[in-house]
Every structure is written in C-alpha cells, then in structure tokens.
C-alpha cells in the first residue's frame, strides 16, 4: 500500500497529465465516432452569451452586405408576386384542410461560424424554446448552409455543409439526376463541395445549377446550392464526381432561415415501419 502511495506521489505530474490527456482523447474520439459533440459544445449560456456580445458588435461591420442581400431577396420575391397576381387560379378550393403550409421558416442570427477546421459548426441564437429541433435544414437567401445538429434552450448548433460528416441530397436543376453532396477538407476549400453518384447518362456542363433534391425530409426540393465548376468521371467510369462552387458565401453568413417540415414526423414514421419489416 505504502509503495502504491509513494508511486502516486512520485509520479503525480505524469499521472495527472495521463488522466487529462486520456479524457481529451476520449472526447475527441467520441466526436469522431458518434458524429456529434456530446457535451463540449458552444450551445450553452456561457459561450453562447459571449459569442452573442461579439456578434452584436461585429454585426455592424457587415450591415451593408446583409442589407443588400435583403433587398435582392425582396426584389426577387416581389417579382414572383407581381407575376403570379395576374394569373387566374382555379376558381374554388373545396377542401381547405389540406391547405396548411407544409414548410415553416424561422429566422435566426449566426453567432459563431467556422470554415477552416475539418468539422465546421455554426452557432445560432434560436434553440428548443423557439421550436428548433435536430435535423432541420438551415439556409440563407443565397443557398444552403447546413443542418441543425444539437439544440439547447436558447441556442442551436448547425453542422455546416463544410463538415466531413455532412451529407446532403442534391440534384441537377435541368434534369432530375440526383446524388450526394459532401465535403473533403483535404481537397476542397471553403467555396467548393463535391457532388457524387450522378450517373454517367446525365448531361453535365460547367456552370449548371445544383439544387437540393428533396429526397430527404430536411430540405425541400429546389433550394439553391451552387454551380458546377468542374467535373470528372470516377475510375469505374459510370458516375460523375462534380466540383460544386457554393452560391453561399460561407465566410459571411449573418442571418439564416431554419426550415421546419410539418410532414417530417409522418415521413420518418413511414420509413421506420419499412425498416422494421
């Protein structure tokens, strides 16, 4: 017993180091395996509050950009409104129960954004109390941003599309060929993502628009992702690997919309019954 005590006292520095090092290794491995940050994340009152103060101050420097984006979006929406106003809709809707909106949009302010690491996350100032839940899509007027991964009461963490764990269903705008959008920090930078699994038959051209595919319940169909900057065939020559330039400026996000799909629960339940059989 005395020997053990003496050993601990003699090597106390090394033992403390070992303990703390193993603890941090454990949390690192956890974040790699389970694709989420369990308890070491910035969605809490302390870090959220500090980031909030910083965002309040630094927000002023980007006001001009955000205002221009808003005006652009307003112009686009007004254009749609004017053009649809003249067209006569079908005279009478008998069943109004099915007329509720399928998608609801919440707005939020981005408190923290990163784009240099391999796993990038955003922190937004809306959380569970505002109705934000895991796996909701996050977009701006310019295109997609990411998917909600964790929520606390007042904050939510968003997994950026610039994250090695990110997988988004995407399709070509002209045709309906769809594939998977992912990001590789070793090859791509923060402006480019990769679209894989587009079959060889698809007509692909540089400059073509890529939109969300609507195959998942996270993003509705048709939200802008970006344009094709280059493409090549895979080694087996049956699918394309497409480099997509994001339409969104991921270094300056500012304000975001969070999409809530009202049918999501129903879709997931249906999928679950299929898997169980």
């Amino acid at each position: 017993m005395r020997q053990i005590v003496l050993f601990v006292v003699k090597n106390k520095n090394f033992l403390l180091f070992l303990l703390l090092f193993c603890f941090s290794l454990g949390t690192t491995i956890q974040s790699h395996i389970f694709h989420r940050n369990s308890f070491i994340n910035s969605a809490n009152w302390l870090t959220g509050g500090i980031y909030g103060t910083v965002a309040d101050i630094s927000g002023y420097f980007s006001l001009q950009t955000y205002n221009e984006r808003l005006i652009d979006e307003n112009a686009r929406l007004r254009e749609q409104l004017i053009n649809t106003a003249g067209t006569a809709t079908d005279s009478l809707v008998i069943d109004t129960i099915g007329q509720q909106e399928k998608y609801r949009l919440y707005k939020a302010n981005v408190y923290k954004n990163s784009y240099v690491a391999a796993k990038n996350y955003l922190l937004i100032n809306k959380g569970a109390t505002a109705g934000i839940k895991k796996d909701m899509g996050v977009i701006t007027s310019l295109g997609i941003v990411g998917i909600v991964e964790n929520t606390s009461d007042n904050y939510a963490m968003v997994q950026s599309v610039l994250n090695t764990n990110s997988q988004v269903n995407a399709s070509l705008k002209n045709t309906r060929h769809f594939g998977t959008l992912s990001w590789n920090p070793y090859e791509d930078d923060y402006q480019h993502v990769q679209l894989t699994d587009i079959p060889r038959q698809a007509p692909v051209k540089v400059g073509d628009t890529i939109i969300t595919g609507g195959m998942s319940s996270i993003f509705p169909k048709g939200i802008l992702i970006g344009t094709i900057s280059s493409f090549s065939l895979t080694e087996s020559k049956n699918a394309y690997i497409i480099d997509v330039k994001l339409s969104n400026d991921m270094t300056n996000v500012g304000y975001v919309y969070i999409i809530n799909n009202a049918d999501k629960k129903e879709i997931e339940e249906l999928e679950d019954t299929l898997q169980n059989e």
């Binding site: 703390l20 090092f21 603890f23 941090s24 290794l25 454990g26 949390t27 690192t28 956890q30 974040s31 790699h32 940050n37 070491i40 994340n41 910035s42 809490n44 302390l46 870090t47 500090i50 980031y51 923290k112 990163s114 690491a117 796993k119 996350y121 922190l123 963490m157």
Partner: peptide, 12 residues
C-alpha cells in the same frame, strides 16, 4: 474546445 466545437483536440 468549448468555444470552437472541436471535441477535445485543443485540450489534448
């Protein structure tokens, strides 16, 4: 780590 959502890489 807490601020940058990076697991435990800075702590380690």
């Amino acid at each position: 780590d807490l601020f940058s959502d990076s697991g435990g890489i800075h702590a380690a």
